[in-house]
Structure formats: structure tokens, C-alpha cells
Simulated assay, not measured.
Amino acid sequence: MSSTEQQTGTVERVEIASRFLKETREVHVYLPHNYSQLYKYPVLYINDGPDYMMMGRMISLLNDRFQDRLAGRFLVVFVPVDKSRRREDYHPEGARNEAYIRFFADELVPMIEEKFAAFPMGPARGIMGSSLGATAALHTLLSYPKKFHYLALQSGAFHESSFASVAGRRDLATVPVYQVVGLQEDQFKSGSGKVIDILALNRQMRDLLQAQGVEVEYGEYDHDHTWGFWQEDLPRALDHFVRHTSF
């Protein structure tokens, strides 16, 4: 191999039969090119996994990132969702939201830590998502605050039940949160045709999290509710994850 040839990580497909969702999910696990079972790695779990892989171009980003031998290594688990049932799984009032969260925490995480060299502690486990996937990430951590200690929220589509669930949760004070939103997201039109002020919702969530003692790294950028924005933001989000999950 020449010194200029890029070393690429591998992506393993793993199936997990969920008793909570009553179906089999296939997740994709990214391993850095120098992954070794002799070490333990932090893990970033990502909602809407296939979209982050394709539209977020995250595999290429990770490969580029890990060319630097000093870059902090971690594993990434891309978790898929059936787009036709996304709201049922991700919305806090969705019919399958509780089942999805239990699948995520009680089935997916133990399987990943059994099969891969993942550091089995809450501070080494993070969850990331965009839009409604960010909302699902938040509620997963709220349901399992000892199992997950990190959140990355891109343009969260938060709901009233989200704010009610965060209020009074002083146990979140040790959770580092990365949160971004676009300045052009004040007139986002949802799939149902409803106009939502995503920008205002994120400002409200930032303020509420900070009121619980949470350290929030918050940013607003001149973008709208699109994958172009979230892809551009990924290097910042991953830098934040590494800074707060290094062991």
C-alpha cells in the first residue's frame, strides 16, 4: 500500500430479531480500518441510519477522519427505520415509540456489545438523530438515562411531550448535548402539511436543557431543514462526540 492510499473501514451488517418490535431489523456497524478486539471503543448510535450513510455520506467522512492516526476511534451503528412507519417509531406519541425505545436500549445495545469491542458504559454510548430522529434520540435517553450519556441533535422536531419530559430532569446535568438548527427552519412544512417553527422549538429545548444544568453546545446556521445542512454539520458533531467520550 502506498503512503497516499486511503485506508478504509468496514461496514458489517447485523440482523437482530426484536421481540419488542416483532420484526427483524438489519443494522450497519462501521468499524475503523484499525479496529481491534483488544481495545474497547465508544459507540455512536444513529437513527435514520441509511439516510446518514447515503445522504449524509458518513462512511466517506469517517474514512477520511480516521486517516489521522491520532483521531479518537469509535464505532458507529446505523439503525434503520421503515419510512412508512417512521412516525410510529420515532414520535413520542407514536404507536410503536415505546417498543422502539425498548428495542434500542434492551436489545440493540447488548447485541452490539456482545459482538463488537464496545465500551460497556453509559458515558461511552451516544445517540444521534435529525428532525424526528433527534426527538427519538432524546426520548431514548430520557427513558434510559443510565445507559446513554450523550446526545447529538440536528434540527430536532420536538413536541410538547418532549418539553414536559425534560422539565425537572436534574439527572440530565451530566449529559453533554450537541444541538444545531438552521435559521431558515422557522417555516418548515411537515409531511402532513403542518407548518412548524423548528428554529423556535430548538431554542426552547436549548433553554430547557440548560435550566436542568445540561451543558449544551448549541449552534444556529444559515440553512434549512435539509440533508445538505446536516451533512455539512457532521464533522462538528463528531468532534464534539469524541471530546466527550474519550477514555
Rank of each mutant, 00 (worst) to 15 (best):
M1T: 12
Q6T: 10
Q6V: 02
G9T: 05
E12T: 01
V14E: 13
A17V: 07
S18V: 00
E23P: 03
V29L: 14
H33N: 01
Y35S: 03
S36Q: 15
L38P: 00
Y41W: 06
Y45R: 11
D48F: 03
P50D: 04
M55L: 15
M58T: 12
M58A: 09
S60A: 13
S60N: 14
L61F: 04
L62Y: 08
F66P: 03
Q67W: 03
V76Q: 12
V76D: 11
F78K: 13
V79A: 02
K83G: 01
S84W: 01
R85W: 00
E88N: 12
D89G: 00
H91N: 15
R96T: 12
N97M: 01
I101K: 13
E107H: 08
L108F: 00
P110E: 08
I112Y: 00
F119H: 14
P120I: 08
G122Y: 00
G126W: 14
G126V: 07
I127R: 12
L132Y: 02
T135D: 15
T135P: 07
A137C: 04
H139K: 05
T140P: 00
T140I: 09
K147N: 10
E160L: 03
S162E: 03
S165V: 02
R170G: 10
V175T: 12
P176F: 07
Q179I: 00
Q184L: 15
D186R: 15
Q187P: 09
F188Q: 12
K189L: 09
S190H: 09
S190W: 05
G191H: 11
S192W: 02
G193V: 02
K194L: 14
V195H: 05
I196Q: 09
D197P: 06
I198D: 10
A200Y: 11
A200N: 13
L201D: 12
L201I: 00
Q204H: 13
M205L: 12
R206K: 15
L208E: 15
Q210T: 03
V214Y: 04
E217Q: 13
E217T: 14
D224R: 12
H225L: 06
W227S: 05
G228F: 01
G228C: 01
G228R: 15
P235F: 08
R236L: 04
A237E: 05
H240I: 08
S246T: 11
F247I: 06
F247S: 10
F247K: 11
